[in-house]
């Protein structure tokens, strides 16, 4: 074991650069997935004809597949039908496809948890169905979705490491490269990477618990 060699300034910088890519991929994917999920979840909740059924089939298919397979497919199989993506785009698209399916279920669950009485009250006070959804149901539901959504975001952040199979230069990939240089670097590098992942995810989960307590 060689802690000093493994965590030399150059290597630290290299690992942190990878971590930056990890965060970048995660943030972009979270933002896009969130928007898609709210749309898909709401359409399914409102039981919009045709579209609702179509989304249901898509969500059920995607969330029952391993993300590793989706990442692999996006990067290696799509070029065969003429769609070439760079690693970064492929990773983001795969994550967005998978996480949107997962998060839209959280959105739908949150909407379904809003008491029917509130909706009736909204409608009887003269609001349209759309207005009731926007001003009453969504705000309540979104607040209730915070804890499961944050834990899904944590999953997403961890899942970025799967993109190591397409050699996306994120943290896990950089860990592998340093491990390749010198076998004595392996343990310290693993520990450092674990610490980085742990720190950010633990902070996220604490923030989520704080939010939860505030609302309940």
């Amino acid at each position: 074991m060689d802690f000093i060699g493994a965590l030399s300034p150059v290597n630290m910088q290299f690992l942190l650069n990878g971590f930056l890519i990890t965060i970048e991929v995660a943030l972009i994917s979270i933002a896009i997935s969130f928007i898609i999920s709210v749309l898909v979840g709401t359409v399914r909740y409102a039981k919009v004809p045709v579209l609702g059924k179509l989304f249901a089939i898509m969500v059920e298919t995607i969330r029952n597949l391993p993300l590793l397979l989706i990442i692999f497919f996006t990067y290696f199989a799509l070029p065969e039908i003429g769609i070439k993506l760079d690693k970064f785009t492929a990773a983001v698209i795969a994550l967005v496809i998978f996480e949107s399916a997962m998060i839209s279920e959280i959105v739908r669950g949150g909407l379904n948890s809003v008491e029917k009485g509130l909706i009736e009250a909204g409608r009887s006070s003269g609001l349209t169905a759309m207005q009731t959804l926007r001003h009453i149901v969504l705000p309540i539901a979104l607040r209730r979705m915070v804890p499961p959504m944050v834990s899904q975001f944590i999953s997403l952040l961890k899942d970025t490491s799967l993109a190591v199979v397409i050699a996306l230069p994120e943290l896990m990939n950089h860990v592998q490269i340093i491990n390749g240089h010198n076998i004595n670097y392996v343990i310290p590098t693993f520990l450092f990477a674990a610490l980085l992942y742990f720190a950010i995810n633990y902070l996220l989960s604490i923030a989520s618990r704080k939010l939860e307590n505030k609302h309940s």
Partner: peptide
């Protein structure tokens, strides 16, 4: 619980393989 929930499975897998 807190440690293993908050690190990626991929990291654990590589650790078992090499570490």
């Amino acid at each position: 619980v807190e440690f293993f929930r908050n690190i990626p499975l991929m990291l654990i897998a590589f650790f078992v393989l090499v570490g």
